[in-house]
């Protein structure tokens, strides 16, 4: 006979199996490496209560997908295939062209592949939210409870250093005054 559970036990169940929302900053990150980590979170493999049959995956909100960094010559030579279904409808698009058309697609496809070939894949992709820049709808912003750690350090560009920092940085030698720097 199934008895109703007590209030305490119900709250405990909600606490253990609650679905979290993670925020991931994709700036300067390799989309293929990040996709593996994101897929891991979407499947719930970051939890010790993980089981493939129980739906323990979390939501992942990714920002700054327009600033992803592909390695080596991938921008030029990684091609994405598409067929419309009609005759003569096959096309190959390179990564930079796809990125110009839709700035979330490269990461979306990377995560889709990393999710594996199971039937749970579409379920996992429903829980992925991609945004090209910083702007997230307020409803999603309220849900977020933690960050996913980035996989690569974000390099600091010269223009991001303040004048004071540049001035106070230790120099081994100083260029001569009339020396022309290219």
């Amino acid at each position: 006979m199934n008895r109703p559970i007590s209030t305490y036990k119900r709250v405990q169940q909600w606490a253990v199996f609650g679905r979290l929302w993670f925020l991931f900053d994709a700036k300067w990150q390799n989309p293929f490496d990040s996709a593996e980590k994101i897929a891991k979170y979407l499947a719930g493999k970051h939890k010790p209560i993980y089981h493939p049959l129980s739906d323990v995956g979390d939501h992942v909100v990714v920002i700054n997908t327009k600033d992803i960094a592909l390695p080596n010559k991938e921008w030029r030579y990684r091609m994405y295939y598409h067929h419309t279904g009609f005759a003569g409808g096959s096309s190959w698009t390179s990564a930079w062209e796809l990125h110009n058309k839709d700035q979330t697609k490269v990461l979306w496809k990377a995560v889709y592949k990393a999710c594996g070939g199971s039937l749970l894949r579409h379920n996992m992709m429903e829980r992925l939210h991609l945004f090209p820049d910083d702007k997230i709808p307020q409803e999603l912003m309220e849900n977020i409870s933690d960050h996913m750690k980035q996989l690569r350090p974000v390099p600091k560009a010269l223009h991001e250093y303040t004048e004071e920092e540049i001035k106070n940085f230790p120099k081994v030698f100083e260029w001569p005054e009339d020396y022309v720097l290219n």
Binding site: K45, H46, K47, P48, I49, Y50, H51
Partner: peptide, 13 residues
């Protein structure tokens, strides 16, 4: 395998 995945998850945390 499942135990190994669970321990890996707990370790990474």
């Amino acid at each position: 395998n499942l135990w190994k995945e669970r321990i890996t998850a707990a370790c990474e945390e």
